[in-house]
Design a protein around this nucleic acid. Structure first.
Lengths: 273, 273
DNA sequence: ATCGTGAATTCCGATATCCTGAATTTATCT
DNA sequence: AGATAAATTCAGGATATCGGAATTCACGAT
């Protein structure tokens, strides 16, 4: 892709990597030596950058001199998560769905080649899902909501995502490309995704896309539950309710909110995680 | 305070300020020209830094070339525990409270001399509050939740905060030091904070502290509502429910999670925003 | 639909900043 | 307590940064 992967990045980008290192490391903090090693820079350099981060409120030093992320970082991140307004707009729907169906409800949005769990409301049943907690990512195509999004992307973007994700899906034990394509075709045709193949034993779910004014998927609502709770009797009911909320949600989204548009050229700006 | 406010900061810190600018700006994105102006740097410089941010997944360009924070930022924070750990741990409580009381619920945490709104769930009534949206800050002592935190800090820290905040509180039309101290004493004694003096006309609220294993306030739950909805009949009920959730939340916090501890010497490392 | 204005992006030289290595202070482990 | 290892500070040399000017691009107006 771009020069994103070049080993020699600007000093700013190198410094930014520290945030990622801190985020992925032990919540109790990381030692300077280890940070420097992982970041691939000298210890004094890491020290100076961390001091800068601390001065800006993004990092702090816990006892034992360990460095970790500080509150300002989380505050900013919370705003980033709310940026689209989708989360707030969807919350009532999630609550209604959870109350009505007594199951766990997910709100997923597309982010590059992944679907990200923006919010979720727990149901009474213990659930295992690919998209774990809030903030969790799965490759587009894996899981009902994720598949619902992929199925409703513009042709060219969908193709690009498929090509990129096939190896990732195979790695995670997903079906082959042909099965994926037929699942996508079915999903697009019927407007929702069912658990045809139980990827997680005993689990089942339904996902419906949330479409913008141009008919592109910007998000998905999905329900995850026990397979036995999605029998032939209940399934149509669940689908109907999910679709109703998804359409109401789509209607609430301001069509002028460019925040939710994904121009095809934006693919080139996507950096894999 | 420290050299945090020196006009000549490192280039890294200057670049980091862009994140704040993006976070505080329009969710739909900011124009490069405006970003450069606010940041106090030239347009090419801002452009290069924003490209770096985008390459690292912290920012993105929406249609119209506008720059805004990207979801990766949010995802990163969601995956890294601590602060967001509290947020996630508290979310069910917030949702329950909002559903039960039909009012707006706030989750506040202490951050230096301020209380920061980590999360909030909207109720059906229009609310004005000091702690505005998520990420909003108020001086410790102003507002019910904020006061609840201050009242339950260790003696020495509380004293330091009071001395620092008195002028700030006066600036915002708060009562004098004597009133603050009596309010603190009462708050500590009864374990919760009520709107004795209606600082915002027509508004009222209740705040309860979330205490760690050492009995120090690390956060607060508060409800903000219309004054008429907090009459003598309902108030005890609201307090009881809030306290129940606060205690349950405190129990869920891992006592070994040093992330939530605020050693007194950390006061010296606090930089005002 | 075409044009004009203003913004976004690229390029390049001067220079301020960053980086590595060594020395000092501080913390941790036996 | 002593020894070891990490964290922090310091200085000189190298390099990447910064801002002005030029170019390309997008948008609004006629």
């Amino acid at each position: 892709m771009t020069a994103s992967d070049t080993d020699s990045a600007s000093s700013f980008r190198r410094a930014l990597k520290l945030l990622r290192i801190l985020a992925e490391g032990d919540p109790d903090g990381l030692r300077l030596k280890d940070i420097a090693e992982v970041a691939g820079c000298s210890q004094p350099t890491a020290h100076r950058m961390l001091q800068d981060l601390a001065a800006e409120g993004f990092a702090e030093q816990a006892a034992g001199k360990r460095y970790r992320l500080a509150l300002d970082f989380y505050v900013l991140a919370a705003r980033a998560g709310q940026a689209s307004g989708l989360r707030d707009a969807a919350r009532p729907a999630l609550l209604r769905l959870s109350a009505t169906l007594s199951d766990t409800i997910f709100l997923l949005v597309r982010n590059g080649f992944d679907a990200v769990c923006l919010d979720r409301v727990e149901g009474p049943f213990p659930i295992r899902s690919f998209t774990g907690d809030i903030g969790g990512k799965v490759p587009l195509g894996l899981g009902q909501g994720s598949l619902a999004i992929l199925a409703n992307l513009p042709e060219d973007e969908q193709e690009a995502v498929i090509r990129f994700n096939i190896p990732r899906l195979l790695d995670r034990g997903f079906l082959d490309e042909a099965s994926l394509r037929s699942a996508l075709a079915q999903a697009r045709a019927q407007g929702w995704v069912n658990t045809s193949t139980g990827l997680i034993p005993g689990m089942a779910g339904v996902g419906v896309p949330v479409l913008d004014a141009q008919g592109r998927a910007v998000a998905a609502l999905s329900v995850g539950t026990l397979a036995e709770r999605l029998n032939a009797d209940r399934l149509p009911h669940v689908v109907k309710i999910l679709q109703g909320e998804a359409q109401a949600l789509a209607g609430k989204l301001n069509p002028f909110d460019v925040a939710l548009r994904y121009p095809s050229r934006s693919l080139s700006t996507i950096g894999g995680s």
